[in-house]
Design a protein around this nucleic acid. Structure first.
Length: 501
DNA sequence: TTTTGAGTTGTTCGA
DNA sequence: GTCGAACAACTCAAA
């Protein structure tokens, strides 16, 4: 079933000329169907990446720009090692792609699919235009285990609930076996051709300068395919055993941390799936069946998010459940800013938001706690939270980010019950019992004993003094009272309860 | 068509 | 301290 993608047959009848590989969210050489198909033709191959400025596309967030710089550097070198080169451009792909094809004298262009509505519209228009111009233009799946249209209900409609979705998906077929990286990516005669609009990596201006806020990210991450492989190996060795339980503990390296690599396609979900599945089958994986299925279900949630985005393209901007259009959101810029900068006065929330700010990533459970706080304690519109995460997360994903924010808000598919309001004190005590996570990211509370680290406002003055904490000065008072905020949220949710969708 | 069971991750209260 | 119930009502998916 898992066969190499082919465009050779259609190309043989075509005019001579090289094949362009348009790289987008697939910045890897291994298990890259478009790249493999291009190399299989035996023709010269030219890899192109465009920093797209098309007006219909959502602008990239700041954190992902930093990551992208490292990714392009890495994949550029990897392509060179195989005898090719990566061409970088900046501009509207709508006009750049046809110009590049023409300048290179290309006979064919290939790419791997993306699933946002604007991206699909753009890609479809380009494909048609290029085919009309006499080129072979082909697209492939590299980003998902299952195409969003492959999984349906028995009635043929899109799925709206995760559990039946994941069950149905796994029954359609096994995820395809990942393909090896091509040994050679020869650019032949194109090596010396300077293409129009070609720029150097530094000219893309992806790195922050004034100020350089990326030092915490440099310490924590290695963008690129090699970094992805290392991260996966480490997770299989030390993270997946006990994953079902330990994934909830934010002070431990028990989650995979593969999300930024997946976002940019520096590893494919098929590679992850098979690495886990293969190791589990041949007994080299030390992990329970529950650990494995819980982890694979996280890939399932990513698939489900793409399924939703594909079938409901407004997932990022409109409430999935329209009754939420009447939700009484508050607009309080001081509260929003306190949340963004980790100054809410709730240590677990602040630790989470600062981890995001410094490292570009946040632990999964902490995402729920922080998101719940913004939506339910502050009653701020989930779209504000989504936008902040989009800008600050290295793994900011058009599907997962939006679907997850709507899930927490209760406005999404398969929504959480209205009464699921995380208590930031008990979540801290339960999942960061010793307070290690808070101490790491909220250093001004580091000397507090575990007993008070999640609710410093009830600590005796002597304890606060001994820890060097002065509430309202060295660390804020809680910006809202938990019990009152909870009651207010319950009332707000009740107010939209009976409005018909 | 109608019915039935189920739905990622929680909290609080009272016995 | 532990445990179970209550917390809205609704929608989805399959039989």
């Amino acid at each position: 079933m898992a066969t190499a993608p082919r465009i050779k047959a259609t190309l043989d009848a075509q005019k001579p000329g090289p094949v362009i590989v348009w790289l987008r969210t697939d910045l890897r050489l291994g298990d890259n169907p478009a790249l493999e198909a291009a190399c299989e033709t035996g023709r010269d191959v030219l890899c192109v990446f465009i920093l797209e400025t098309d007006e219909t596309l959502k602008a990239r967030g700041g954190a992902t720009r930093w990551w992208l710089h490292g990714s392009l550097l890495a994949i550029g070198r990897d392509i060179e090692k195989r005898g090719g080169r990566l061409v970088l451009c900046k501009g509207a792909s709508r006009s750049l792609i046809p110009r590049i094809c023409k300048a290179a004298g290309a006979a064919a262009i290939v790419w791997n699919r993306r699933y946002g509505e604007a991206e699909r519209t753009l890609d479809a228009a380009l494909k048609k235009q290029l085919q009309d111009d006499g080129l072979v233009a082909e697209s492939f799946n590299s980003h998902l285990l299952y195409e969003p249209w492959e999984v349906t209900t028995k009635a043929g409609t899109p799925m709206r609930v995760f559990t039946p979705f994941w069950r149905a998906a796994r029954q359609t077929h096994e995820p395809m076996t990942p393909r090896p990286a091509p040994k050679q990516i020869p650019d032949g005669k194109l090596a010396k051709v300077k293409l129009p609009d070609e720029v150097a990596l530094d000219d893309l201006d992806l790195l922050p300068t004034k100020p350089d806020w990326a030092s915490g990210m440099r310490d924590a991450w290695q963008p690129g395919e090699t970094g992805a492989e290392k991260t996966l190996r480490t997770f299989l060795k030390t993270g997946i055993d006990g994953y079902a339980e330990n994934r909830n503990l934010p002070d431990r390296p028990s989650t995979s941390r593969l999300s930024p690599y997946l976002k940019f396609g520096e590893i494919s979900p098929r590679q992850i799936w098979h690495a886990v599945d293969h190791a589990a089958q041949n007994g080299t994986l030390k992990a329970s069946a529950d650990d494995v299925s819980k982890f694979l279900a996280e890939l399932g949630w990513r698939e489900f998010s793409y399924h939703l985005l594909f079938h409901f393209p407004k997932l990022g901007s409109e409430n999935f459940q329209s009754k939420f259009d009447a939700f009484p959101w508050a607009s309080d810029t001081a509260h929003l800013k306190a949340w963004q900068r980790g100054r809410t006065g709730y240590p677990i929330v602040d630790a989470a938001m600062r981890q995001l700010w410094v490292t570009g990533w946040m632990h999964n459970r902490m995402r729920m706690v922080a998101a719940s706080f913004l939506i339910k304690h502050l009653l701020i519109d989930w779209r504000e939270g989504e936008a902040w995460f989009w800008d600050t997360l290295l793994d900011a994903d058009p599907a997962s980010n939006t679907a997850s924010w709507q899930w927490v808000a209760g406005s999404g598919a398969d929504a959480a019950p209205y009464f699921r309001i995380f208590n930031p004190i008990s979540q801290g005590q339960k999942f960061d019992t010793e307070g290690n996570y808070v101490r790491e990211f909220v250093p001004e509370l580091a000397k507090l004993p575990a007993k008070y680290i999640h609710n410093p406002w009830i600590a005796p003055k002597s304890v606060l003094d001994a820890a060097g904490v002065t509430l309202g000065e060295t660390y804020p008072h809680p910006i809202v009272d938990h019990d009152r905020a909870r009651q207010r949220a319950l009332a707000a949710f009740k107010s939209i309860g009976t409005i018909d969708a």
